[in-house]
Write a protein that binds this DNA or RNA. Sequence first.
RNA 1: GCCCUGGUGGUGGAAUUGGUAGACACGCAGGACUUAAAAUCCUGUGGCCUUUGGGCCGUGCGGGUUCAAGUCCCGCCCGGGGUACCA
Length: 948
Amino acid sequence: MEYNFSEVEKKWQKYWLDHGTFRVEIDYSKPKFYVLDMFPYPSGAGLHVGHPLGYIASDIYARFKRLKGFNVLHPMGYDAYGLPAEQFAIQTGTHPSITTEKNVIRYREQMSKIGFSYDWSREIKTCDPDYYKWTQWTFIQLFNHWYDPDKQKAESIETLISRLSTEGYDEVTSAQWNSKTKKEQQEFLMNYRLAYLSDAMVNWCLELGTVLANDEVNNGISVRGGHPVEQKLMKQWFLRITPYAQRLLDGLDTIDWFESLKEIQRNWIGRSEGADIFFPIQDTDYKLEIFTTRPDTIFGSTYMVLAPEHELIEKITSADQKEEVMDYIEKARNRSERERMTDVKHITGIFTGAYCLNPLNDQPIPIWVADYVLAGYGTGAIMAVPAHDQRDYEFATHFGLPIIEVVSGGDISESSYDAKEGTLINSNFINGMSVKEAVQAVTERLEEMGIGKGAINYRLRDAIFSRQRYWGEPFPIYYKDGIPYPLNESKLPLRLPDVDKYLPTETGEPPLARAKKWKTKEGYPLETSTMPGFAGSSGYYLRYMDPKNDNEYFSREAAEYWQNIDLYIGGSEHATGHLIYSRFWNKFLYDIGLIQNEEPFKKLINQGMIQGISQKAKGFKSGSLGDMKFYIIPPDFTYIEDNISEKYPRWRNIPIEFVKDGKLTAMNLELMKQKYPLFDDLQIATVKDIIDLPPKRKSRLPQTQESLIHDGWVELKPEVEKMSKSKFNEVNPDQIIEEYGADTLRMYEMFLGPLEQSKPWDTHGIEGVFRFIKKVWRLYHDDSNQFRVTDEAPTMKELRVLHRTIKKVQEDIEWFSFNTGVSTFMICVNELTELKCHKRAILTDLAIILSPYAPHLAEELWEQLDHKESISKACFPDFNEEILKENTFEYPVSFNGKLRFKITLPLDLNVADIEKAVLEAPESARWLQEKPPKRVIVVPKKIVNVVI
RNA sequence: GCCCUGGUGGUGGAAUUGGUAGACACGCAGGACUUAAAAUCCUGUGGCCUUUGGGCCGUGCGGGUUCAAGUCCCGCCCGGGGUACCA
């Protein structure tokens, strides 16, 4: 009889639930600690072993902090809105809430089996009206606020209105404001609201029937589904995140995230410093405003470029160029974003016939239109400096435009010199200056002349906030005379209505337009778009603090007690989406006084991906049209390649559950076909199959090839890939728990390697951890499974093992080095087993320190050790430095850096005595060869190195 | 292209400030127990050489700094991630 993990684990999971062991409330007698996992989207496929990796790490940390006396908030919930449930609804008519609820139950069940210490009473779902009420509420606040650049924070829109009506604001005088109609006023305010409606070029995905945010599009293809995305002008809701760009950038310096992740965010925000410069356009009153990061190169500017969308083009193009220019603009406009991206190499552009003047030397400069300049960035116009910008260089070379070198250091006959170092030449009053000095000098001169100023641009764009979809939060907005107004807060939540179909209407309106009576009580139509996925996930961590509160998002008391998140664990794929939006959302709520911290996530760790090992079958297709077979051949088989292979797909993923020892047997293949009809065409190739192949060229195979073909089975090739259902390489945690138990799963996932690294799941290795768990059990139980813990006093040796382990385990958790933590336990248990230690004084503490990693086993042992309360209420033992103190040290002695022997010496020896002892050691004679050493380096408690 | 990462035995990985490279596991080989198997336990396991004392070589490659380099510096090569006309 051995440790019965499945019984024990069920017992404690039930106990924790029944006793509310992990429920937390505000408790001023303890310091708080907030540990959060990025909540999952509950997909139909359920969890695979990769998903819980981060959850296990955070759970260990949360349990550790509890033992250390913290009041730990450790909740879990669901990012429940999402495309798959809606797609399923379109196909089957099943309401997405039904699909979602089913998946949520499955997720909860799977997570419960792993033994997480979540406070399940705080569970939230973003699709729950009690929750999305506050998503809608926040949206209304965003709508009702603007960003005051003087105060650098969000302010009520009323403050802007009162300024406009009394003193005026920006370029609008109070008289102008007061003479505007109500509609005009509302339209004007849209330019300032933090949530606003605007016509904009958006990423429109026809297949999905919705617009997508920039981070949902990659290379002109939707991230979800992989459908083509085109640019389309549409009215959409936006969140004005851009005024927060600088604060989002600065905030990064105050938080403890991986530097690589901060770097991704910095790049995404994309701050660049430079200057806005006005160039007068010859023979007109127009001025061309451009943005450049290199005002120092202004004398090297040999042409200007406008984006095809630029509004000045029509006004300045000369009569003889008009037709060609208009033609070019038309073509550029019809070129989809995707084309523009895939066709980077193709240089196009057209001369407008107009010239502007360099304001510093009155030289005329030709103005061109080209699609390599983007309308949305800076002013949509640039001064081209071909000598010092690669893109301009290529353009100038292509169209034969002049290239003037103004910064020395490169060879402009070869390529542009883009570096920001060198001395200015051919540049009038800045000749001889360094780039840095010249930038400043030119900017100052332009400012003096009133034709330019220092400027900062950000790559970050306002976030498109509407989706033409059903399964999302409805906007709390109605329209009166075409003007949007927020609903009264008392009307929240505005519930998602039922619809007959989850598709757009015949007239192309979003699915909500199908709802009956989608109007306010007064009869005003409601907004038919819904919010995007990131709406519900941007502020969910705040709701956990007070999840049942019906009157507020969360109480002030809860916010003041729990503050922000001390530890956040999740995937780095959210670097430019969720993690930016959340920080923005949080800063806004901070501005309006709801919370105390500007940054939501103090420390963030990205866990790596657990990859799957796919099993790939190599093969070829053959047969008649209606009966095409895929013949599987061994990976080393090459004979087929010459005549057949390149015409047909050669590799197919085989579901790993049917593969044993890298082989697929004919019997398993049959079982597999029964489960997945998709594989009906598979067949293990026999020698005859290959010989019979058309064209029938050979009657026999080379001996070496024939010997690879076996009767009844075929070899497959393993390959490390992302774990996913479609690759048939998923490993389900339920199976692992069934076979080895949750504690083994938890420890093995940690043992696999550093948390932040990606690594393949290899089920073989789990045996080692499983043996360890059984070994722990045997420290407490004898061969007949009788509890064998004694009250004997521990020896110094045993105490040393224990305290060394306590120290290392604690340090490893604090450093998030969970893999070495597991090894530490293994070493400890190996040593205690060797010492035949079954003493209460040692094993009590061992159970406590092991409990964050293997909570079920630890609880069971704790109970057997006669404790009445859960082990999670125990106290993490302190290690005793006195016990750890050694009085000797085994010095490695090297000669010329090469280790030769070891010598054990007392620790209280001084350096001279150590040197003496080493040189007098008998082993030294052999290396010294009776000559005195040149030098002896003694590093106490580390090493001795003798130089000869 | 640019930015960020990483490269250590057959495999996953350890070495936290420059100080014993390969901890801990898996796998493999041999052994004990057993009628047999499973389970468990023991021994060995970086490579090459060896007179069995040990020696030489080894952390992607080539240099360097240092008494001492997986760790620091310079130049390459390869893998993973981010980004891509952002002026």
